[in-house]
Design a protein around this nucleic acid. Structure first.
Length: 201
DNA sequence: CACCAGGAATGTA
DNA sequence: TACATTCATGGT
């Protein structure tokens, strides 16, 4: 079922090539900046960071908070997000990816202030290519509307995907991106989904 | 004018 | 455990 839906989305929209970024640090930074924020505004903030050479966690760690705040303002919530960027920068300053399995890694990320379930999984999947399925509000709404799975609990929904799909990082990356693409294209403006490529149940 | 965006922390019951 | 509030900018 889920795999057929994936194929339909892929055929309809094509590959999304998520996550759009040049470096691993940029993915991590973007994952925090995009919390409840449009990607368009995140791009402005990342542009500012790049322009000043601070789209880099080591550099973010060693610069005044106020300086980061000024650069990321277009992404909103700049006071808290500047702290979160500092926190995640400190975390990765002494972390060895190679000696940490995915479950441990996930728990460690969740202990960082500012990193919740979705942000942690986005970092794991897109920055480190760990096989975890990212869930967001679009995904939960999508499953409910299509009457595929009725739950708002993050890890329940995540298990639903991961137990019904092959354990494939590239599949997970594209599938989440396609659900976001679908939501942005149709479901927001048009709840009836008359043009939606996925049939309503 | 209201509403939302690729959430998370905090507080309340 | 389940909700409510707060955080902030920019587009529609």
């Amino acid at each position: 079922m889920l795999i057929e839906i994936y194929k339909s989305l892929l055929q309809f929209f094509g590959k999304q090539y998520w996550w759009p970024a040049e470096t691993k640090d940029e993915i991590i930074i973007g994952a925090i900046l995009t919390q409840n924020t449009s990607w368009q505004n995140v791009e402005k903030a990342i542009f500012n960071l790049k322009k000043e050479g601070f789209c880099n966690l080591c550099k973010i760690r060693d610069v005044p908070l106020e300086y980061i705040q000024q650069l990321i303002k277009p992404a909103g919530f700049y006071k808290q997000k500047s702290v979160y960027l500092k926190e995640i920068a400190k975390f990765f300053a002494n972390f060895d990816e190679n000696t940490t399995d995915t479950l441990q890694f996930r728990k460690m990320l969740l202990n960082v202030k500012g990193i919740g379930l979705e942000t942690a999984d986005s970092i794991l999947l897109y920055a480190f290519s760990r096989p975890v399925f990212v869930i967001d509000a679009y995904t939960i709404r999508f499953l409910k509307r299509k009457k595929l799975f009725d739950s708002s609990k993050y890890e329940e929904v995540q298990s639903f995907f991961m137990q019904n799909l092959p354990n494939d990082v590239e599949l997970f990356k594209e599938y989440h991106a396609l659900i976001v693409k679908l939501a942005k294209t149709y479901c927001r403006k048009n709840p009836n989904c008359t043009e939606c490529p996925i049939k309503c149940a």
